[in-house]
Amino acid sequence: MPTLAHLLHLSPETLWMVAKVLIVFGGPFTLASLLTWVERRGAAMIQDRIGPNRAALFGKWRLLGLPQIAADGIKAFLKEDLVPPHVNKLVFWVAPLLTFLPAVMGFAIIPFGQSFVSGGQTYHLSLLDPGNGMGMLYPLAIGSMAVYGVLTAAWSSNNKWSILGGMRASAQMVSYEIGMSLAVITVFMRAGAYDPHLIIQAQLGLWNVLPQFLGFLVFTTCMFAETNRLPFDFAEGEAEIVAGYLTEYGSMKFALMYLSEYVHMVTASALIVTLYFGGWRVPFVADPGVWLSVLAFVIKLLCFCWLFIWIRWTLPRFRYDQLMKFGWKVMLPLSMANFLIHAFLMFKGA
């Protein structure tokens, strides 16, 4: 690391920071665009179809339909950027940004590999170093900001369907945030820390899923709600309210919103992995080293991304009242029970 930095006439810290920023912002972005492909092909396979496989590079290489991503991107860029006349222009323009930024920023705290020492210096594989005091509160804070994108998009569209979608989304996110927070607090309590590095350290022998299976269930469900993925995709609900808050959006603005859903998915999977599946830990290996740990993290991440897609094509959408009932009467008591059980066990010294 120092030699490479010396070659580039940069201090190691600067180089490392630049590299991390590139990885942390580029990684989820790339992964998200890949996920759009996985989603479409996977959905097709689940439904005994084939899915998009016609787009080809230079009309020759089909590569299992992967060029579809590029084709979609080009299409979105070249389309007419239509702004309907009845919208609130400023907010309409700001909304895609408000959706996209929280989605990308959330990943910054996640350690995606084991810290390593090079040239007498420790390098941490997360954008925000441990001991910054924010810890896992940071993704929660960023996640709570995500609702504004939906809300502003919905309101500025000046459209009944959009407003309905936005209101559903905001109500849903607020009600599921509480259950989620309680589940996360249990993890904090068990680990005795709220810094992701320390949480992962605490999962050395046993990943958190096993002792806190209830918490894991609650957290994952809430993550589905937070990312607006299918059993909870009330904000879009295409059978009921056209496309919800996306109704008036087109071209690149739509693409940005659409992509940020997938970035959200990546971030949510990363959170689940960090909190409950030992982050970068490899089973039965105490000290896996950098590459192996990154690999383990990415594999776990992909598994959860697939889970998101898989669930989407398995479960039908809830009804709105069912959603609210589920959030307040099932999720919240469950996570509270989880919290109390663990508090009691800790009090007993187990």
């Binding site: 097709a44 396979m45 689940i46 439904q47 005994d48 179809r49 898989w310 094509w313 398995t314």
Partner: peptide, 10 residues
Amino acid sequence: ITLGHFFRQL
């Protein structure tokens, strides 16, 4: 069930 369909189709 869905995973079964997925692999069968794959």
